[in-house]
Structure formats: C-alpha cells, structure tokens
Amino acid sequence: MRTTHHASGFGLVASRQSPAARTTGIVGVLTAVWRLYRNRCQIARLQDLDDRQLLDMGLKREDLHEALTSAFFENPGSYLTRASRNRANLFYRGVRHD
C-alpha cells in the first residue's frame, strides 16, 4: 500500500459530537439569529427619526432602506456603520454629500 492511501484514510472517519456540543452549537445559532432579528427591529425604529436627526448620525433614509433589505444573515448594523463612516470621511475632506 502506498503512503498516499494511508494519508488520505484519516479524513474518512466521521467524528461524532457529544450531545452537549450539539446543544451548544444549536444555542449559538439561535442566539445569532435572535441578535440579527433584534438588530433589524432597532434599525426599523430609526425610521421614526426625521432626516435631520438621521443626518446628525451620518445616515440617510436610503441607508436604512438598504440595511433593512439586505440578506437576513448579513448584519445590517455593520452596513450602517460603514455608511456613516464614509459620509463622515467625505465631510472632513470638504466634500458635501447631503
């Protein structure tokens, strides 16, 4: 038998997870889904603010819409953070973008 047969044989054995490890994994996934849902609810509440208040945070209504219509498993908060930072960078460079 060749060395390649021995080396490739190690990956064929499936590892079994303990019930505690499986439970921890499920709880972790459910926690992540709950956090994403809660973040989306908080971003939806930002729509109650007027345009001036949103601009004070460096955001526009279009940013909120983009964040809320993104894929569910993408973090919409990170999109809003990027949009706000980009708008702030433009402001400090002297480019007016409102």
Rank of each mutant, 00 (worst) to 15 (best):
T23W: 00
E62H: 05
L80E: 04
T3L: 14
S15A: 01
E74G: 04
F72M: 15
S18T: 12
N75A: 11
T23D: 00
N39P: 02
G11S: 13
A32M: 09
D63N: 14
D48V: 06
N86S: 13
L55F: 10
R22C: 00
A20E: 15
L54W: 04
Q47N: 06
A7C: 05
E74F: 12
A83P: 05
T24S: 11
L90T: 02
Q53D: 15
R87T: 05
V33Y: 08
F73V: 15
R22P: 02
C41N: 11
P19Y: 05
D56T: 04
L49P: 02
S15G: 03
A67R: 02
Y79M: 14
A32F: 05
I26M: 08
D51W: 06
N86Q: 15
Q47H: 14
G25E: 11
A44E: 15
H6C: 07
G77Y: 00
R93A: 12
R61V: 03
D63A: 07
H6M: 13
A14D: 08
R22I: 06
L55H: 06
R16S: 10
D48I: 09
E74Y: 10
S8A: 12
Q17I: 01
Y92L: 11
L68G: 06
F10T: 04
G25W: 00
R52P: 00
G94P: 03
R85D: 11
F91R: 14
N75M: 05
R2H: 07
F72T: 07
Q47A: 15
K60G: 06
D98G: 13
L80R: 02
A71P: 01
N39T: 14
G25C: 03
R85C: 06
E62T: 13
Y79F: 13
K60H: 09
D98T: 07
G28P: 00
Y92K: 12
R96M: 10
Y92E: 14
S18V: 00
R82Q: 15
Y37I: 01
W34I: 07
I43S: 05
Y79W: 10
G58W: 08
L68I: 10
L46G: 05
S70M: 11
G94N: 02
R52E: 13
T3R: 10
V27D: 01
A32V: 04
M57P: 02
R35N: 08
R22Q: 06
D50W: 10
R40W: 08
S8I: 10
N86L: 14
M57T: 01
R82V: 13
H5N: 04
A7K: 14
A88N: 05
Q42L: 14
L64M: 05
Q53C: 15
N75V: 08
L80D: 01
G9M: 06
A20R: 10
H6L: 15
L54I: 07
I26H: 02
Q42A: 15
V29R: 10
Q17F: 11
E66K: 08
Y79Q: 13
G28A: 13
R40L: 11
M1H: 09
F72E: 09
D63M: 02
L46Q: 08
H5S: 08
A67F: 03
G94S: 00
T3I: 13
R2L: 09
K60V: 11
L80H: 04
N89Y: 07
T24W: 00
V13I: 12
R38A: 09
H97P: 01
A32H: 11
A20V: 09
R35G: 04
L90V: 00
